[in-house]
Computed example of a mutant assay.
Amino acid sequence: MSKSIRRVEEAARAASLQIEIERMPDSTRTASEAAEACACSVAQIVKSMVFEGASTGRLKLLLISGKHDVDLGKAKVLFGEELIRADPKRVRSETGFAIGGVSPLGHLSEIETWMDTELLAHDTVWAAAGAPNAVFSVAPEGLLTATAAKMLDLSG
C-alpha cells in the first residue's frame, strides 16, 4: 500500500470515519471514470480540486460534486478573491497527493476546504483516496465534519 493511501486511512481513523479504500482495476481520475468504476451517479463523485487564491496565495481545496464545475468568474464573490489553478508541483508538495488522486483527507499541511452542498443530497459519496485508482465511499455529512469544510452552493 502506498504512503498516500495509508495517510488517507490514518486521517479517516483520526476523524472517526469508517472507510474502506478500494483499488479499482481502471483509473478513477475523472468524475465519469470514477462514477463508472463505483457504479454510482456522477453527482455522487467528490472532485477534489485545488486552487490558489490570487491575492493571498493560499491554497483552497474545493470538494465539488462530479455534476458541477467551478465558475472561476464567480470566485471573488464566493471566496473573497479570484482563484487560479494551483501548480501541480505545489499541490503535490503541500497536499502529498498528485492531481487525479487528491483526497479530501490526509494532507501534509492545513488547507482551507469548501464542500459543494450538492454532495449532501446523497446517502453516500465517493472520493479519491490518494492514488488515481483508489477511492472510498463515505456519508457526506461525515466527510463534511472530518474536513471541517465550509459549505459552497454551486447550484445557481
Rank of each mutant, 00 (worst) to 15 (best):
E110C: 01
A43E: 15
V91M: 02
F136N: 02
S93D: 07
A131I: 06
V46N: 01
Q44S: 07
V102T: 11
E118V: 05
A75L: 09
A15H: 12
L144M: 12
E10Y: 04
S65K: 02
L72T: 13
I84L: 08
K89W: 09
G53R: 09
P132T: 03
E141S: 05
A139H: 08
G142V: 02
Q44L: 03
S93I: 00
K150Q: 15
A148S: 15
I64L: 02
S103N: 08
S27V: 02
W126L: 01
I19W: 13
R23P: 03
D87L: 11
A134R: 02
D123K: 15
E118F: 10
E112G: 07
E94G: 04
R7V: 10
E82S: 15
R29Y: 13
T117D: 06
K47E: 02
V42F: 00
M49E: 13
I84D: 03
A128C: 13
L152P: 06
D69T: 08
R6C: 10
R92P: 04
A128D: 04
D71S: 06
S16I: 02
L61N: 12
P25C: 12
A14C: 09
A139P: 01
A134L: 03
L144I: 06
K3H: 14
Q44V: 01
M151K: 15
A35G: 05
A15Y: 13
Q18N: 12
F79L: 10
L105E: 04
T145F: 15
S4K: 05
E118A: 13
A75P: 10
T95I: 06
T147W: 14
T30N: 06
N133R: 14
S103E: 10
G130T: 10
A98M: 01
D116I: 05
G106T: 07
I64R: 00
G130A: 08
I111K: 03
A127F: 08
E82P: 10
G130I: 06
C38D: 00
M151Q: 12
E33T: 00
I111F: 07
R85I: 07
E110P: 07
A121R: 15
S103I: 06
F79C: 08
F97G: 03
I45L: 07
I5S: 07
D123S: 13
P88H: 10
